[in-house]
């Protein structure tokens, strides 16, 4: 049971981030808000993956196995939004 402390720290950090993301949504951030929200969500995910899912102690292959899903999701979003965000640029 040597990993109890990191798990508890991570849990505490996660709840802090949760409070932060709720608080940020009420701040007058305007168009910056999504970036703050998703940055916090990514930070939470990193904590969960690294400490709860134990990727910290896993070999490269296992990290790739999990990471590849996120990487390919990034490809999907990046190239789809290359269309969706630029569609109005012509002939608006």
């Amino acid at each position: 049971m040597k990993n109890v402390r990191p798990i508890l720290y991570a849990w505490f950090a996660l709840l802090t981030l949760l409070a932060l993301t709720i608080g940020a949504s009420f701040a007058p951030l305007g168009p910056v808000l999504p970036f703050v929200s998703y940055a916090i969500a990514i930070a939470k995910t990193v904590l969960i993956i690294w400490l709860f899912m134990e990727m910290k102690t896993r070999d490269g292959l296992q990290r790739i196995a999990l990471g590849v899903g996120f990487a390919w999701l990034f490809i999907l979003l990046l190239l789809s939004f290359a269309d969706i965000l630029t569609r109005g640029w012509l002939g608006a």
Partner: peptide, 22 residues
């Protein structure tokens, strides 16, 4: 092969900028 799918959509109304990349 995962990054080329938009070539099926050149006449779909897809942004021409995206079409150029694809």
């Amino acid at each position: 092969g995962f990054m080329v799918w938009g070539h099926h959509m050149f006449v779909s109304g897809q942004s021409p900028y995206a079409s150029a990349i694809f």
